[in-house]
């Protein structure tokens, strides 16, 4: 039971990170109907920007950890958002009215560009950082000596995710930008006729998705203590799987899918084998899609006439 509880905590933390990345996939799919395969690499860029900002801040002699964390969070969100905006502007927008596969191919190309660019700029080696946030709580100690640990970094990941989700939900459901985004998702032509600048709204979608991926990158860096140029690939595929599992196009679905993938992976590693955790996650995806083709919370696709 204790072992189970500990794995539950670990799975939720991992799932939060996947969920934050998955939102970027699902949002872009909802509004422009394409899979942004470069999104995993945007997450990787977020991790690197966070790392560089950490190093720069510490070299200035700053020691207050909350201040450092806040600055790193804001800087990596801002710079990664700029990456997201630029990617959309140069790689996707010119192809928006081209044939359906063109932006997808462009996205795959963009993914390679970002991976190789990071490898050249930052080197191929794994970049570790010393643990910043240490300590935690012992929730329960059983007689045979197994302890359930809840570390501070785990608390931070989950709390940050919840706060971001709250802000994000408010943004989409209550603000002008959110209304415009939903309008563009449902009928771009009509939104334009009502005066909405569709291009700008799509840009903002990429910016927000990239900012959330940057937060995920920072969390990953803090939680695992390392980044490397290739980490975007696997994390991106997992988050994409999460978005599909939850029902692509659905925002709560993306978060739910992220948590599901995180939990499946963690439990499989804990009870069966670490080597086959990816096999487990993807197998469950296949099973879910056979019985629920639109994912857990997806709406059935209605052909527009």
């Amino acid at each position: 039971m204790d072992y189970f509880a500990q794995q539950l905590i670990n799975g939720l933390v991992l799932g939060s990170i996947y969920g934050l990345i998955a939102i970027g996939y699902t949002m872009v799919y909802g509004i422009v109907g394409m899979i942004n395969f470069a999104h995993g690499d945007v997450f990787m860029i977020g991790g690197f920007v966070a790392l560089i900002t950490f190093v720069l801040l510490i070299s200035t002699g700053l020691t207050a950890i909350p201040v450092i964390l806040l600055v790193v969070l804001l800087v990596s969100m801002a710079i990664t958002a700029l990456y997201g905006w630029t990617i959309e502007r140069i790689a996707y927008r010119p192809l928006r009215h081209s044939f359906r596969l063109a932006p997808m191919l462009s996205a795959i190309g963009m993914s390679f560009v970002l991976t190789n660019y990071s490898q050249v700029a930052q080197g191929a080696r794994v970049k570790p950082i010393p643990p910043f946030i240490t300590g935690g709580y012992t929730l329960h100690e059983s007689q045979d000596g197994f302890v359930i640990q809840l570390s501070n970094i785990q608390i931070m990941v989950v709390v940050t995710t919840i706060v971001l989700l709250a802000i994000f939900t408010w943004l989409v459901s209550r603000t002008r930008l959110g209304r415009d985004m939903r309008a563009c998702e449902q009928d771009q032509t009509m939104a334009a006729l009502l005066g909405v600048n569709v291009d700008r709204t799509i840009s903002m979608t990429f910016v927000i998705g990239a900012a959330l991926a940057a937060v995920a990158g920072l969390m990953y860096l803090l939680y695992y203590g390392l980044v490397d140029f290739f980490m975007g690939f696997v994390a991106g595929i997992k988050a994409f799987t999460a978005a599909v599992l939850g029902g692509i196009g659905s925002l709560p679905g993306a978060m739910l899918g992220g948590l599901a993938i995180g939990l499946i992976e963690t439990f499989w590693s804990a009870y069966f084998s670490v080597e086959y955790k990816d096999v487990a996650a993807f197998s469950i995806l296949i099973v879910v899609l056979i019985f629920m083709p639109t994912g857990l919370l997806g709406r059935p696709e209605v052909e527009k006439v």
Binding site: R176, R179, D180, R182, A183, Q186, D187, T189, M190, A191, L194, G195, V196, V305
Partner: peptide
């Protein structure tokens, strides 16, 4: 348009709010 092109998933009020974007 000849066919109805409301934003079906949004409320009536939200439909009218999108129109006041500018």
């Amino acid at each position: 348009f000849q066919n109805i092109r409301l934003f079906p998933g949004m409320t009536a009020l939200e439909n009218l709010m999108v129109a006041q974007h500018n």
